[in-house]
Design a protein around this nucleic acid. Structure first.
Lengths: 355, 355
DNA sequence: GAATCTTTGGGTAACGTTGCCCACTGAAGG
DNA sequence: CCTTCAGTGGGCAACGTTACCCAAAGATTC
């Protein structure tokens, strides 16, 4: 009525909810072809001529069309990878995540992360939620759920398990040799002259998981390495968190005979230990040596400079992504087990014990 | 053939892909009612008698039915909340996340997190992906995208913006007063006797964002507080990462006249600063004072004991969740702006300058 | 006792996409 | 000239769920 209309992008900003989503039907109409044709172009399936492809691509461009993943899900694919991890605060996991996203960046897949879940119930809820959302593949980092459940899950959706020392025909695994890693630390400390080396582990009671979870295997590696050196095992069970480290250290310091070195099962645990030691007025490594595990960024921090074990998180992530893509492409392929080797990174928190 | 069959849960473990998902149709048949009825019970909608509810619930139980969120998405709801954050390594964000998940725990909603995205392009991809997956609501933490895009996004899907100092009729916001927070630090240092106080900020050039992004507002608060004290502003621009802190500190130390205090715009930045200082053989706070921002767990760590500014991340998270739920329930409700106040937490990294 | 509500239940058409099929064309092969 | 076939395009029925209807029956009102 009142003069010329502007191309419409102004008016739609002022209305409450004017925009209906652009669908494949709109694209088809705009390009003057069938929806089937558009779908074929989208999935670059067989049966679309170059001319057709061009027409459709132009229409997609002009309309700003994006396929609706929720609808695709109903047909079987959502182009979504779900990642589950035990604790978002543990700085080791971002490394793995970076490896995953770097590898997945130039595929059609998107990565979505669940919030931290450190127990079987939360894991169940999260994996259910991911399956219910039609995710195409799952990466489970150090899951604690039962093997039966893991098998069942992997039968439902392509799955890669990271960190847990299991072997299954249904899912692939990427692990780092935690037995060797623990031995690296024990040997390092023993070589420095330490005899009383305590270990703070993440508590684990389930007999099945005792042989499988990275924390349990690490503790077992410690046990074996200590035994091989003829040293007495001294384990405190808390959790792989900063608080776990703090409490574990307090427990250790409360004893009549204090160890000369502490091997924390994870860097984040070592952080808590540092707080407890500092509160107790003990200095590292003069009064007590400390080693962590994971070689996270924090370990390299100047004032901390924590001796740790590197397990190449980024590499773990890229391997996991590759395995998952392969499994999505062919669900019947034989399951692969990738096992990586850890390296010791000595820093300033470990030194010979005071004479 | 060979003896009795076990109740079937063994055999299905051995086949490749036997399980078809239990659908609403199966439940309806099993309960002897219509699918409509089941749907009503699921959504506890009007028009289902108590007897009917009981029957359906029992069938759901017996069949182990879970609604397929991907299919629900096609009808409008996925019961999924998407969270976008700039950097998963920044220990401040897990606090917000905990607040979110705690509040959402006993609702039907699930939280899914995008991988870190620190630039406009990644943000665009992630938010598109979330919209395409039919998410019911989005929480954007310190997004850098343009205001126009933010408006458009919020028109498409219920959105809460955290940290960014914008006001819009389309989305709610939760922010902390960064101007005050910066002043708290400057005043604290100035009161201790410091005159040369440098600030490491997250680089920001876009004029629109200069007034909106928490980092920019923090820098501006620093500027104003310094001016109010008659002190000379000294800003180094890097990023809110550990590396940014490291590089920023190196830049500061390379100058002819060294400041007596550094105000890092985030705790994670302060961590990098600590490394650089330690490498330069400088001790904190004897040679130089250091303050961070966010009061993360690491700041409280014994050997670090970083003076910082607390902005109650958990509280921010619960507020954001509540606002989002309210907006999902009523998309036309007036937009709310919640502004929280920061508190200074003095620790051992700040002290009077050497005389 | 007729008219009007309220309660309870179900039928059905979407939502946006894809995979299976079939139809048509023109070229190659006998 | 008739068959075969690859290439190209489209019709259509799902996928699992929900919202909008309408129908039947019982309860209430005048």
């Amino acid at each position: 009525m009142s003069g010329l209309r502007k191309p419409g992008n102004v008016s739609h900003m002022d209305r409450a909810e004017p925009q209906r989503r652009v669908t494949i039907v709109d694209v088809a109409r705009h390009a003057g072809v069938s929806t089937t044709a558009v779908s074929k172009v989208l999935r670059n399936a067989y049966g679309a001529s170059p001319a057709m492809r061009a027409k459709v691509h132009q229409a997609i461009e002009e309309l700003g069309y994006r396929p609706y993943a929720a609808a695709r899900g109903l047909r079987g694919q959502t182009y979504t990878i779900g990642v589950m991890l035990p604790d978002i605060r543990n700085p080791f996991f971002p490394e793995i995540l970076d490896g995953l996203t770097d590898t997945l960046r130039d595929t059609d897949y998107h990565v979505l992360l669940g919030p931290s879940c450190d127990n079987e119930k939360d894991e169940g809820k999260l994996t259910d939620a991911m399956v219910d959302r039609g995710m195409d593949g799952l990466v489970l980092i150090a899951p604690v759920m039962s093997n039966a459940r893991l098998e069942r899950l992997a039968t439902t959706v392509p799955t890669v398990v990271v960190g847990r020392h299991t072997r299954s025909a249904r899912y692939d695994t990427v692990t780092d040799d935690d037995t060797v890693g623990a031995a690296l630390v024990v040997d390092h400390l023993a070589d420095l002259g330490h005899r009383r080396i305590a270990h703070i582990e993440h508590h684990e009671t389930d007999p099945a998981r005792l042989a499988e979870m990275p924390n349990a295997v690490r503790a077992d590696g410690y046990r074996k390495a200590m035994a091989a050196r003829g040293l007495t095992v001294d384990i405190v069970s808390t959790s792989y968190t900063q608080e776990g480290g703090y409490l574990g250290a307090q427990q250790i310091l409360g004893r009549p005979e204090r160890p000369t070195a502490i091997f924390a099962g994870a860097d984040i645990v070592a952080m808590g230990v540092l707080t407890a030691l500092s509160e107790a007025g003990l200095s590292v490594p003069e009064d007590i040596s400390l080693a962590g595990y994971d070689n996270t960024n924090v370990a390299a921090l100047g004032p901390i400079s924590l001796t740790s074990v590197d397990q190449a998180g980024h590499h773990i992530g890229t391997d996991a992504a590759r395995l998952l893509l392969a499994r999505i492409a062919d669900r019947t392929r034989p399951a692969a087990q990738i096992k990586l080797s850890p390296k010791l990174v000595p820093r300033r928190t470990t030194a010979p014990p005071r004479a």
